[in-house]
Every structure is written in C-alpha cells, then in structure tokens.
Design a protein around this nucleic acid. Sequence first.
DNA 1: GCAAAAGTGTTTAGCTTACACCCATGT
DNA 2: ACATGGGTGTAAGCTAAACACTTTTGC
Lengths: 241, 241
Amino acid sequence: MVVDRNATVAVHLVVLTVLDDELVALVLIEGRNRLVLPGGPVLDDEDLLGAAERELWDLTGLEASRVHVEQLATYGLPPRVTVAYLAVVPGAAAELITDTDGAADADDVVDEYDDDGGADDEAPEAEWLPVDELLSSPDSLAFDHHRILGDGVERARCKLEYSPLATAFCPDEFTIGDLRRVYQAVWDTALDPRNFHRKVSGTADFLVETGRITAGESGRPARLYRRGDVDRLHPSLQRPG
Amino acid sequence: MVVDRNATVAVHLVVLTVLDDELVALVLIEGRNRLVLPGGPVLDDEDLLGAAERELWDLTGLEASRVHVEQLATYGLPPRVTVAYLAVVPGAAAELITDTDGAADADDVVDEYDDDGGADDEAPEAEWLPVDELLSSPDSLAFDHHRILGDGVERARCKLEYSPLATAFCPDEFTIGDLRRVYQAVWDTALDPRNFHRKVSGTADFLVETGRITAGESGRPARLYRRGDVDRLHPSLQRPG
DNA sequence: GCAAAAGTGTTTAGCTTACACCCATGT
DNA sequence: ACATGGGTGTAAGCTAAACACTTTTGC
C-alpha cells in the first residue's frame, strides 16, 4: 500500500460570457488547430481557488471580486489531477480582451500549461469561441477538456434556474432585457419578454432598482437594475422545453 | 514560479443512509471525542473514484455497483488536497454494520486515514450518527470535515428534488411509503402521503412496478417498485417550506 | 370491529402561458 | 408617423395543496 506523494495538482478554467447574444468560452489556441482550456499548476503559496483566480487574471486582467468563480469538479488519474473551475465574466469586460487581442498585445496572455506533449515557449493565443460549436465537435478540444467544458456549461445552464448566476454575465447595472438575452443565449431558447419581465421582477431580492434608466438606444428607455443579495431564487425560473 | 510537485491527494467520504426515519452519516471515532469522516490516500494504481469506492468497501463491504457514489468537491491547500465523495447506501445494508459493530467484530472496519496528528495503529470505530446532531455542533468533526459533511448533505437534499437519488437509500424493491420516509428524513419535513403517492407515480420512469406487494405488515399491503432508468425527474418534486 | 397504512377522487388556490394592449423613445 | 423595445393587464389552462373517502390488511 504505497502512498502516492508525487501528485501534480493543476487548475483549469471554463470561462464563459455572452457576446452578441451568443454563449462563448475562452480557449487557448496552441497551434495546429490544437485548442485547450486555460489553466496551469497550483503554486506553492496558493490555495486552489487562488490559483484559478490568478490564471483568470493572467488571461483577462479581471479582478476576482468582479468575476463569479466556483469549483466544478476534479478530473484525472493521480499523479496528475486537475481541479476545474467555472468562471463567468460580463460580456462588456470580455470584449476588451478580444479588442486588445486583435491589437497585437496578446503577449500578456501567457499560460504555463503543464503539458504531456512538447510544449514550446510560444505564448498561446486566447480567443472566445461559441460553446455550441466547441461542444458539437468532440475532438475540438485536447485532453478531456471537451468533457470539462460540457460539465461547466451544464452547470451554468442549471444554475440560471435557481441562482442569480445570470447577473454575473451582466455589467454592474443592467436592464431586464439584458438579463433576458443572457438567459436566451445560455439556454439557447426564446423567452417571452413580457412574462420574463414579470417573473424576474417578482422574484424576491433578485434585482434591485438603481433609479436610473437607459438612454440613447432604440425603443423606450429601460430601468437599470443591480443584482440583489440572494444566492437562491424564490421562486426559481423554469427552462422551457 | 515553482511548481508544487509534492502534492498528496486523498479522498474522503460523506456516507449517508436513513435509519429509523433519521438521516445518519458514517463517522470514525478516533478516541478522545475526535470524529472524522472516513477516507484515505489515493493509491498508485487507482483513479479518484476507485479510491473512494475502495474506502467504502473497506468500511461497509458494499460493492460499488450497489451504492450511489458521486464526487462532491475538492478541498484543501496544496500540497494537501482531498477530493470528497458523497455515497448513499440503503438503510437495510447499513444496519448490518451497526449490528456487527455491537457484536464486537468491528475489527474489519479499518481505515488507513492519513493524519497530521499522531495516528497510532488503533483501528478507529465506525458509527452512524444523526446528521442534524453533527451539523448543529460545528466542532464535532475534526479538520474541515464539518464543512464537507454540510456540503454533502446539502447536495443530497437538492438532488432529491430533481434526481432519483432517494432510491439509493432504499433496497432493490421498495414501496412508495418507504420512498416517502426517505424524503421526509433527508428533508426533515412532513409530506402528505396521498399527494406524494400521486406525484411520484406520475413522474415518468421514476419507478417501475415489480408486480409484487408487501405482506405481514400493519395496514394495507403496498405495491413494490424498483427504480426506473432516468437520472432526471420530470416533473421534479418540490421541497415544502 | 378497529387501527393502520395504501391508494383514489375532488375541490380550490396559485401559478404559468399566451397574447392584447399601452408607453416612451429614436429616426 | 412609424419602428423598436419596455412594461402592464387579463383570461385560459395547468399544477399543487388540502382533505374526504374507499381499500385491504393485522390484531
């Protein structure tokens, strides 16, 4: 009965956001059509969540306080174990990366991915890719990252029903229409705007009014809300289908 | 940026069952009122789930095929990481342990718990203790095992709503009354027997009739059911309150 | 017969759904 | 004026809670 004392613990991230009404995930392109989820080893002075938050900061520059991060599951066969985290970032913040990415200062986006194959010193490029495309082709992602992404997306889809997770896709202040478009993108389904409005504004402490309203957009101005202080929705929303 | 290559990966178990209409968890008594959850290191030739199932077999003699085991979460600060699993066993199978335990052949119940403190060669004694007592006194369990137990119980309580997990508390064949008593014990709430009966028998593929009925008990004989082949209940049950 | 548990029927209240309708802005 | 999205009202249909009632056993 030999105890394994040589385990390597890494973290990987499923980073989700909504861009142009589409659910997208952050993936690294390591050349030759090789896609992986961002991640890396846990350092000596970190706990698991801290390592996940550091990786996320390296990639997006987002402070942990502004991002929803939760543990997903742990995968792999010792001595190689990876703890996967789900991160949800606002679409507005995510667009910054895509922009600067195109502007050729993507060299900040470095990943110390601990790889079996021959990892060279090339910094992989980070990109937002649609989740449905990634999930519909099982070989798009290397290792077991397809499964991890699937688990992360599944978690997000479920948690929209009974938790205020959808607000993590939105900026600090958002309209009920913004929130509805998040639900529609994540669930990949159409929702009746009128019933959705009544539903979420009737769910206790889900949303708090800021008093401000939007301006300059097409249509009637909408009230702006901030996320309320609950981690459980009562009553919960129901996914159609 | 030093990579930690000396991590120790262990598994721990939240083992739940229902005895005498009460939700109980399996804990090890290590003397001096020191209670811990069962667990131990992952061996060289095991994956994580395999290690959890082996620990469970060591404690209860239950084959993995007869027990529901699912991953809960991963805790701890590297280089010491523990992957917690939730196990649900039928009350009937669980009573065997408690019985043989009292009959003084508990020496089978050995655990290789990897401990910081001075672990001697005394085999800890395993016992079923009520979950509400364990959870209401935060210092009853050592390390972070109180938190792990809480997470496991919370997971079980949630999954009763939308999954057939409750059948894992029951023997192969059970009545709807048996199932209701599981729900009542786990949720610690009273349920209307008539509405519960209609609800579960109307949930598609939750239960399949065996054709057999109970005999020799007080009251009208009840139909015996086996668990159906679904992992999602439609529609889901709702917890009162 | 009586107690106990299984199982069915019925009523009522609440909730969801679909959609008619009005509101307030940009163009 | 008209398009666009925000927001409210309402009726039909479905679901769940409460409980009266019948069934079938053990004692």
